[in-house]
């Protein structure tokens, strides 16, 4: 529980962050610290330098940009939970943020940190996938935007380059008749998702127009459940239709297994929780 020695830099601007990242290739960005510091205390991570972005202006905050809601990378779960605009337009975020870790984690942990860390059992990557979010990142060559569906590459691996910093997460505002839900089977010790399913649907004339399902925990990286989405799109979302679509939930997942939940059990939970999340999302859409 005593980390190895490291250097500490407190950045004051995004360009300075990028510069520090270039100067310290073995450095890590520190935001809320609730994933990184425990790993350092266990000496599972020994970064040579920490680049603290906690006080970079403009990285924290939630903006209503008309068609989208823009969340700064250092916005905490607590900030998200307090936001009326989030609760009204993107209740999926509120619902999921409310079951992240414990109060201490929610007070300090950041949305950007959750995305960039890409823990395979974190809640927010599934939410970003279901809401079709995109990540604004800044590097030495300027700015680029990466869709969530391309951002999460593998366990603890994202599309970010080592010298890039995530600055904003952009969520499009749902249009039309939509519903959202997050269903989580939490690990009794860690609180992480053994399986977490985020579902988003829009209905048109009683049929499913758009459906996006993000699954975390079950596999090595959070993923869209494409087979589920294909099975349900254009259908009338009866309980039976949802159940048979959810049966595809584990397809395409590279499943995780551990002492608490085997690969087989996780696949089963993915199906059960996909069904539950979709049912609730459809019910919410129907009002």
């Amino acid at each position: 529980m005593y980390p190895a020695a490291f250097e500490y830099y407190r950045a004051t601007s995004v360009p300075e962050v990028v510069q520090l990242l270039q100067q310290h290739p073995d450095g890590k960005i520190l935001a809320g610290g609730h994933s990184l510091l425990p790993m350092m205390k266990l000496r599972l991570a020994e970064p040579a330098a920490l680049i603290d972005i906690g006080r970079v202006p403009d990285l924290n905050g939630i903006q209503d940009a008309g068609d989208s809601i823009v969340v700064g990378a250092t916005t905490t779960y607590w900030n998200l939970l307090q936001s009326d605009v989030i609760r009204q337009s993107l209740p999926l975020i509120t619902e999921a943020a409310n079951v992240v870790g414990d109060i201490q984690v929610r007070n300090r942990g950041t949305l950007g940190g959750a995305m960039a860390h890409a823990d395979p059992a974190a809640d927010m990557p599934a939410v970003a996938l279901a809401l079709d979010a995109s990540m604004k990142v800044v590097g030495p060559n300027g700015e680029r935007t990466i869709p969530a569906s391309e951002f999460f590459v593998d366990m603890f691996t994202t599309a970010l380059s080592p010298d890039e910093v995530l600055t904003q997460i952009i969520f499009p505002k749902p249009q039309g008749t939509s519903g959202q839900a997050y269903e989580k089977f939490a690990h009794p010790a860690s609180g992480y998702a053994v399986v977490g399913v985020a579902a988003f649907v829009t209905l048109d004339g009683g049929k499913v127009q758009t459906v996006r399902v993000g699954i975390t925990g079950a596999g090595t990286v959070a993923k869209r459940a494409s087979a589920v989405e294909q099975a349900l799109a254009g259908q009338e979302p009866t309980e039976q239709a949802i159940e048979s679509a959810a049966a595809h939930a584990a397809e395409g997942l590279e499943l995780n297994g551990d002492i608490f939940a085997s690969e087989e059990y996780r696949a089963h939970l993915a199906r059960v929780f996909t069904q539950r999340a979709l049912s609730r999302a459809v019910a919410a859409a129907r009002g």
């Binding site: 266990l42 690990h187 009794p188 010790a189 860690s190 992480y192 002492i259």
Partner: peptide, 12 residues
């Protein structure tokens, strides 16, 4: 010991 931390060992 696979359950060697409070992340794995489920204290209620």
């Amino acid at each position: 010991l696979l359950s060697g931390s409070l992340m794995d060992y489920a204290l209620p």
